[in-house]
Nucleic acid binder design. Structure first.
Lengths: 217, 217
DNA sequence: ACCTGAACACCGTTCAAGT
DNA sequence: ACCTGAACACCGTTCAAGT
């Protein structure tokens, strides 16, 4: 409902050339990059265009990023940060029920993805694999994992989640949230999402299927 | 176990220039493209390099594809075809149990993803959204959906899967398989996949969590 | 019908030179 | 310390011309 969206938030902090000698160019490039990815899709991120919009020469970004890939890594990192904020909020809103927390997390994750589809694609485009090259990117994604696991552990203590390995259950939960989000933004769940409130409905169905199981009752 | 991998399968059908006047260039370009994506990652797919390896001029591909994006769409389509074959096999191998079929599908899906990670990323990089532009790409992805749904419906008839809307249950199953596969190839499930047989184990855990549910028993 | 070669605009990256 | 401008190699795309 209040997922962060970058469209339109650009012009406020961009052509303010006074700041570039004070270390703000790095941040500016990241935010311009997020904006461009949101608009035109991830594959076409244009480093020269980023510099142009930021009001610097096309060589300036190389003061702050080793190459284009490093900028994309920084953008992805910011994406994980934004997603973590949404998740944190969703978790704290339903503090009294683990099942409700799981549903709320699913909705927040999906909502973030449909609000920032290209950014989410970029966040899961293979850069997290290069852990030595982008350690902080891996760290922030691990923070997400830990947030989910905390919910699981507390739910287990209260007796609402079964007492298997919390690491493994966390994998299952994240997998379901992520798969649901991705398939929705790729239009693969069209038969269902076309309906009224289809996206919220199918998110709920997916989380409930995981919570309750598919087996015949 | 026998998931299709393109590495090394290229040279057999490539520098055979006799075929290019018989309509084989299109296929050759697709297969060279898959190979290059498998090697170097999706974002760096180089149309001129594809043509070079195929043994034609850099302008020749434009006889067969409107632009680079159209080639990528054709590559993705081939990827969905290959995935569908693996899934079909997994389904038919466990014909007597719906739950085993679900587990087998999960393993096949994950296996395909870790064998062809860049290809899978390309398949879910936003092209399926442009349905008017690439109708056959959407069709083949829909075929996957239908394959899963058939398993669900038969499982429901036999009393092994609960009798909710089969469309919705299919969404949940595909979401779980897809999320598991993607998070694994993005190294996000590292805490668990590092263990011996970690990947197969966590795939099993994810599918079982969905089948049996997370609730305390 | 299918492919080639030259040409154009534009991008990622580097580096000497500026303040 | 940070940024600029020219330069280089290379890519996507187009188009007149070849067989």
């Amino acid at each position: 409902m209040c997922s962060t969206n970058y469209k339109g938030g650009l012009l406020m902090d961009t052509p303010n050339k006074k700041n570039y000698h004070h270390g703000d160019l790095r941040k500016t490039l990241i935010h311009v990059g997020i904006e461009l990815i949101s608009e035109s899709g991830a594959s076409s991120l244009d480093l020269r265009k980023v510099a142009r919009i930021a009001g610097v020469s096309h060589a300036a970004p190389y003061r702050h990023f080793a190459d284009k890939k490093a900028l994309i890594a920084a953008i992805s990192e910011e994406g994980f940060n934004l997603l973590a904020i949404e998740m944190e909020q969703a978790i704290s809103m339903k503090a009294n029920s683990a099942h409700e927390q799981l549903r709320g997390m699913g909705h927040a994750y999906v909502q973030f993805a449909i609000t920032n589809p290209s950014l989410v694609r970029e966040m899961f485009s293979g850069l997290t694999i290069e852990r030595e090259a982008y350690p902080s990117l891996y760290d922030i994604s691990k923070k997400l994992f830990n947030m989910i696991e905390t919910v699981v552990i507390i739910g287990q203590e209260k007796g609402n989640i079964k007492k298997s390995d919390s690491n493994e259950l966390t994998c299952a939960i994240w997998s379901m949230m992520h798969g649901t989000a991705i398939l929705i933004i790729e239009n693969q769940l069209k038969p269902v999402t076309m309906q009224i409130n289809g996206i919220e409905h199918i998110t709920q169905v997916c989380m409930d299927s995981l919570i309750l199981g598919l087996g015949a009752s």
